[in-house]
Simulated assay, not measured.
Amino acid sequence: MEAPFEDLSALGQSFVDDPHPVYARLRSQGAVHRVRTVASGEFWLVVGYQEARAALTNLRLSNDIRHSTGWSDDGGNSIGLNMVQTDPPQHTRLRKLVAREFTTRRIEALRPRIQQIADELVDAMLPMGRADLVEAFALPLPLAVICELLGVPVTDRKAFHDWYLESTDFSRPEAAAAAAQAMTGYLADLIAAKQRTPEDDLLSALARNMADKEDRLSTEEMLGMAFLLLVAGYETAANLISSGTFALLRHPDQLTALRADWSLLTNAVEEMLRYEGPVETTAFRYVKETMDLGGRTLARGESVAVVLGAASRAPERFAEPDRFDIRREARGHLAFGYGIHHCLGAPLARMQGAIAFRTLLERCPGLALDTDPAELAWRPSLMLRGLHQLPVAFG
């Protein structure tokens, strides 16, 4: 008998605004559930901590959509081929090529520049007295950082951001496909320019791999890599900054504690990632062969999504998981995933978060919400968890 499903789309705006009570209810009934959404149809949802870790490391679950039942094409929205869409050994090869360029040294060298950008953005915000923190700070900071790291010209950044927003609006499929094609063309031209005239940036370094006879990146792989690094490098960091700031403002005792003791900052960032991580649910995995997970039988070709946000609030792993506490031992959360697909950019995201929070809190002592928290709108995405806006006043 087929398992009954929970219609997540029917839960409405309350689920978008705060999905955690729903995940807690589902988790109390079992670790793995059959669910449905209008956009994706029926699939399996993993909400338990141990089951999430197991799913993220089980080789019978593939990241390659060609293992999905009924797959025919990508609808025109795919840009190249990247690490998120591949399995070993291809994934291993691609990750190795990026990892040898995305080094700790290269990331650490960005620290002074990240601080400078953060200060410039605060300089622009403070005289206004109030601002939307997403638009004025949380988004432009990581966008500037990742574009400088990759070598995207300043004049092209807004266009790229607009294309990305359109390409992920699946309520308008024709516009989404057109934006994806525009991004593909832009990135292809940019990569070609880096091959002709390399500079001291990550795209130039990767472009050199396209000429490596022994272990070269194909054009499709290079396109996919450039797109993944750009998108994953800024929207998730923006969500961390805005959601983390919101959590602090909603918990003034934690805000006061952090301002009084900056040695808590590193752990505070981990608690923000655990409490309201920037990625709510993984991209789909596809069952390569029938398997059991959490007491459920998953058939070949079925889709599986792992709720990182639910696993990071699992009571079997974290005591009082719905309590925001910057002093708790928060490591072990799954905000950056787990296993071979653990986020390669996690060190950069953590650095940007730490710089952003300290800069904001030190330079804006009167920082406060400038709206009723109930009026804030979260992005209606099962995958990414972020605020549309965060109105603040500077006192």
Score class of each variant (00 low, 15 high):
269 V>H: 10
262 W>K: 00
202 L>A: 03
263 S>F: 05
244 G>V: 12
261 D>Q: 13
276 E>L: 01
185 G>R: 07
175 A>I: 14
197 T>K: 07
239 N>I: 08
229 L>P: 01
237 A>N: 07
223 L>C: 09
195 Q>F: 05
193 A>E: 04
227 F>S: 07
192 A>E: 12
230 L>H: 04
196 R>I: 06
194 K>G: 01
262 W>V: 12
273 L>F: 11
184 T>V: 04
203 L>F: 07
256 T>M: 11
259 R>E: 10
264 L>P: 08
214 E>A: 15
267 N>P: 11
210 M>D: 03
194 K>D: 01
247 A>M: 02
273 L>D: 12
200 D>F: 02
274 R>S: 08
200 D>C: 05
188 A>H: 13
272 M>Q: 06
238 A>V: 06
237 A>S: 14
273 L>H: 13
219 T>A: 15
236 T>S: 13
178 A>C: 05
275 Y>H: 15
267 N>A: 14
206 L>M: 13
252 P>I: 05
188 A>T: 11
244 G>Y: 06
230 L>E: 01
234 Y>E: 02
273 L>M: 14
205 A>I: 03
211 A>N: 15
252 P>H: 08
208 R>E: 07
188 A>S: 14
254 Q>P: 14
276 E>Q: 10
192 A>H: 05
205 A>R: 09
241 I>H: 01
277 G>M: 12
178 A>D: 10
241 I>D: 03
182 A>H: 09
245 T>P: 06
244 G>W: 06
231 V>H: 04
224 G>L: 14
183 M>W: 00
235 E>S: 04
260 A>M: 09
262 W>F: 04
225 M>D: 00
251 H>W: 11
230 L>C: 02
192 A>T: 08
227 F>I: 10
242 S>W: 05
192 A>Y: 02
195 Q>Y: 00
230 L>P: 01
236 T>I: 06
193 A>D: 09
259 R>M: 10
215 D>M: 11
204 S>I: 02
185 G>P: 10
228 L>C: 11
179 A>C: 06
224 G>M: 14
222 M>P: 05
238 A>Q: 06
208 R>M: 11
233 G>V: 05
234 Y>L: 02
193 A>T: 07
261 D>H: 14
255 L>D: 03
276 E>W: 03
252 P>L: 08
236 T>E: 04
273 L>I: 15
225 M>I: 15
183 M>S: 10
233 G>W: 02
206 L>A: 04
248 L>T: 02
214 E>V: 15
215 D>A: 11
266 T>R: 15
191 I>S: 01
235 E>Q: 02
242 S>H: 02
259 R>S: 12
241 I>S: 04
259 R>V: 12
227 F>M: 13
220 E>A: 15
234 Y>T: 02
183 M>Y: 00
258 L>V: 13
250 R>M: 14
188 A>F: 04
212 D>S: 13
257 A>K: 11
185 G>F: 06
209 N>S: 10
269 V>P: 04
180 A>E: 07
219 T>K: 05
209 N>F: 13
